[in-house]
Design a binder for these strands. Structure first.
Length: 509
RNA sequence: GCUCCAUUAGCAUAGUGGCUAGUGCAUUCGACUUUCCAUCGAAAGACAAGGGUUCAAUUCCCUUAUGGAGUACCA
């Protein structure tokens, strides 16, 4: 085995990729790139019953969207292929035979019904049924049956599985990069099924064989695999292979309460748990991409879920390149990381602030085109859009925010916020607004600062009071008491439009 | 039940055998803006409990509590 870093992300194509899976992919990617290693995508489709059409494409598209390209994998190939386990069936056959011959595995004929019966009856007595050294001789397998009987059963086409013969009494010391040493007694291990009766290997066998053949140097996976680590290490030993190093990532926990993050949490609290939207006949699950998140923000958020650069750094915004540089498995925390949808939004906001007005204008234009079917103001004036964005940017989190934040730059208000009107539009207001129109009409220079001077002078000399002018004016132009600096708005929409809107407000209110 | 893993403020985390335990989000209050927005400033808030080891423990060890994961012919 070479000492080059080779890691794999090995999802099952059973549906859309969960955000936890994406984080696992990300950590694998970061670790690989940090060490100039290879990032491999391997599709673990040994369970034919759970296979979902389109899931593999979904996985690949997700990685593409997040800019986490794999170096080897399905569709692009590599020197260690094939990269779908369903296409590696013959390989597993060969290796399970090896285990059978060396006495590390055995045939078992117990039917699912029989096993189920055992489990149930044990449960009734408050015990757990474990298929291992303490009872394997009482069950139907090639250890308890005669050689002839075993042969007879196999020849007659009776279904069987192949189980691992786990050692009876031994204390294993396992090593995890994140957790350190883990001790486990083999007498509590059960004889896991390695080969299913449908001729496919289970995850346990397939992942060891593939990791070995693909020369995987580090296995970085979710914490849910920790209980299987002993089995896997034992398997490497049974094959006589050196084992890769292991790192088990902490779980991603739901925002409130306990337990790991599930799709339901997202639905309930209104945030996506998938990178991309996923449509089935029954429902649509939202995705970060469709919800308007930037891939960089999602990556950044995910990277900080269970990892921190350490050394008291206060840095939170990392580009992918910076993450690669800073990442290390030693700084991955052991405790589960609670998912925080608000923080995710915050990251998106940070990234939005970093983008240029130009870039944002281009993205916003797409939304604008749909909204502005019959606007009299502007349709495709990029400069205009850019000026608007410059004003709105700092209060936006998503590109889609620009519309609710600043639709009045494109369409005159069609209605006025009732509460604001009630509070700010007094009887005298109409008269004040009429005078204001005269003042504005006289303004030659309609730039923000110069209108501001003119209006302020007028207010002071007439002793009207700022609020009495500015608030109704805002209502006239915006339709509500919100938006950026009023004089900036006036400059952008222009003199004519400004006066038009005030007249309209006087008329309507 | 059994096995394994975890536990710093509401949340995410940093950090250390010994001075006031650092940061971000959220919260509260101020400033600015006559916008319950944004920005800026400030405040409040934590080492799960008990026992050791030690001159000294949030930091090392044990127990308890709490939580999580696994316990499938699923991955």
């Amino acid at each position: 085995m070479s000492n080059k870093v080779r890691v794999r992300f090995a999802p099952s194509p059973t549906g859309p990729l969960h955000i936890g899976g994406v984080r696992t992919a990300l950590f694998n990617y970061l670790f690989a790139k940090k060490h100039q290693g290879t990032f491999i995508l391997r599709i673990e489709d040994t369970d034919q019953n759970r296979y979902v059409e389109g899931a593999e494409n979904y996985i690949i598209e997700s990685l593409q969207w997040l800019h986490l390209p794999f170096d080897e994998g399905p569709t692009i190939g590599g020197n260690y292929g094939p990269y779908r386990q369903s296409e590696r069936k013959d390989i597993y056959k060969k290796y399970i035979d090896q285990l059978l011959h060396s006495g590390n595995a055995y045939y078992a004929f117990d039917t699912p019904e029989q096993l189920d019966f055992h489990r149930k009856s044990h449960e009734a007595k408050g015990e757990t049924f474990i298929y291992n050294w303490h009872n394997r001789l009482q069950l139907e397998n090639s250890l308890s049956l005669t050689t002839e009987e075993v042969k007879k059963r196999i020849d007659s086409g009776k279904k069987y599985v192949i189980r691992f013969k786990s050692p009876e009494n031994e204390t294993l010391i396992l090593n995890d990069i994140i957790r350190g040493e883990i001790k486990i007694d083999t007498h509590v291990l059960d004889d896991k099924i390695l080969f299913k009766s449908d001729g496919m290997p289970t995850y346990h066998l397939a992942n060891i064989v593939d990791d070995h053949l693909m020369e995987i140097s580090h296995v970085i996976r979710g914490e849910e695999w920790l209980p299987s680590l002993a089995l896997h290490v034992l398997l490497y030993r049974a094959f006589g292979w050196g084992a890769p190093e292991f790192a088990h990532l902490p779980l991603i926990l739901k925002p409130q309460g306990k337990g790991k993050l599930s799709k339901r949490d997202g639905d309930k609290m209104g945030f996506p748990v998938f990178p991309l939207a996923w449509k089935t006949e029954e429902s649509i699950s939202r995705g970060y991409r469709e919800d308007g998140y930037f891939p960089e923000a999602v990556v950044n958020m995910l990277a900080l879920l269970g990892w921190n650069e350490g050394d008291g750094t206060e840095k939170e915004i990392y580009s992918l390149e910076e993450l690669i540089k800073a990442f290390s498995l030693e700084h991955v925390s052991k405790a589960g990381a609670k998912f925080n949808p608000d923080k995710t939004k915050w990251f998106n906001q940070q990234y939005l602030q970093q983008k240029s007005d130009d870039e944002l204008a281009e993205m916003f234009q797409l939304i604008l085109n749909k909204k502005l079917e019959n606007s009299h103001l502007v349709k495709n004036d990029k400069e205009y859009v850019k000026r608007v964005i410059a004003l709105l940017k700092e209060r936006a989190t998503f590109v889609s925010d620009f519309w609710p934040l600043g639709s009045f730059f494109f369409i005159a208000p069609t209605s006025y916020d009732e509460k604001s009107v009630r509070k700010q539009w007094k009887e005298t207001t109409t008269q004040v607004m009429k005078e204001l129109i005269t003042v504005l009409k006289s303004a030659e220079d309609f730039s923000s600062s110069s209108i501001e001077n003119v209006v302020k002078d007028w207010i002071t000399t007439k002793e009207i009071g700022f609020g009495k002018v500015m608030q109704p004016l805002r209502i006239s132009l915006v339709g509500a008491l919100q938006g950026p600096h009023l004089f900036d708005i006036m400059e952008i929409i222009g003199k004519d439009e400004t006066i038009l809107r005030i007249e309209k407000a006087i008329d309507k209110l």
